[in-house]
Design a protein around this nucleic acid. Sequence first.
DNA 1: GTCTATACCTTGATAGAC
DNA 2: GTCTATCAAGGTATAGAC
Lengths: 193, 193
Amino acid sequence: MGTKGSANRQRIVEAADRLFYSRGYNQTSFSDISDETGIPRGNFYYYFKTKEEILTAVVESRLTIFKDMLSQCEASSDDPRERLLTFANMPALNESQVLQYGCPIGTLSSELVKEQDHEVSQAKLTAVFDLLRDWCIEQFNALGLSHKAHDFSLDLLAKLQGITLIANVYHDREFLHRASGDVKNWLTQITSN
Amino acid sequence: MGTKGSANRQRIVEAADRLFYSRGYNQTSFSDISDETGIPRGNFYYYFKTKEEILTAVVESRLTIFKDMLSQCEASSDDPRERLLTFANMPALNESQVLQYGCPIGTLSSELVKEQDHEVSQAKLTAVFDLLRDWCIEQFNALGLSHKAHDFSLDLLAKLQGITLIANVYHDREFLHRASGDVKNWLTQITSN
DNA sequence: GTCTATACCTTGATAGAC
DNA sequence: GTCTATCAAGGTATAGAC
């Protein structure tokens, strides 16, 4: 296995992933990651040259997590309509995390757009959004809605980001589920003909 | 005038407001604010005991800005329906800022929910959301939709936050305006009977 | 490959002269 | 009221022993 297969490296990325999500990137220090993993600070630089490289690795890790999530959506049904419904249910499914910390890519994006550095990580983050958008487009295409597939897909992402943010700010479980239902109703409506 | 009327104090808050918006709270240092205002770092502590107090002052400043914005919405028409449409158009109206830095309260909230400190500022931030929500509720009430006023209001906030976040991530001006139009269509639909 | 020690800088915050 | 000098703590990053 290559350098990326190191057990320590993976433990660092996993801990950083959790901490970046629960505290934010800028509020997570090497000491925090060291405390969580038991790996001394100085040892990080054997695996990563800078803190941003850890960030990049975390974003890549989230990319594969979202790929797996999309695989689950595909496995849920052969019907693209059902797949989209499964997709739209993800925020509600991850209720407790969403209420506490928001969306793993939405909140991180909000944090990173504000900085002039981290261009690499930021590009990779946008790639995660692209992944989701393109997957949705495929589903809409398969439903014969190719003329509106792009707009519908961005709409869907915006709706989910919006209810996630409001549910997070208010820690409102009720709203999260009610609004998720509304999104699913909207999906059924636009995909029925 | 009270202590809050000091010219220097106001200059600090205004500079901090801009910087917190464009760089984020945690990424803005006293040195940054000092550079912008020309006021030496050490002098800040005459006006504010901690950095969080500056944050609180900034949030209070944004609260009054949003109050003014709502006043403009009310002045735009006597019809609550028109007022809501004016409100829904705000992200599109502030296009350039939204595309670059997102929503002034949405992004700040996302940043602050992740921290255990800043409870005071966080509470005041939620108060800004409450202000907007309650104003929307009033408009829906006036339209005879009191049974759905609360849900509609949260929906509206979520929609605007969602399109703002996606427009920000993608720096997509087209989407911002198209999706704003959709929200306004939705408003006309649910308020017509 | 792993760990310790440490350099160097910036941070928020303080003390005290003027 | 305003400013300079400085503090202690914590940040990222490096050097080098094992």
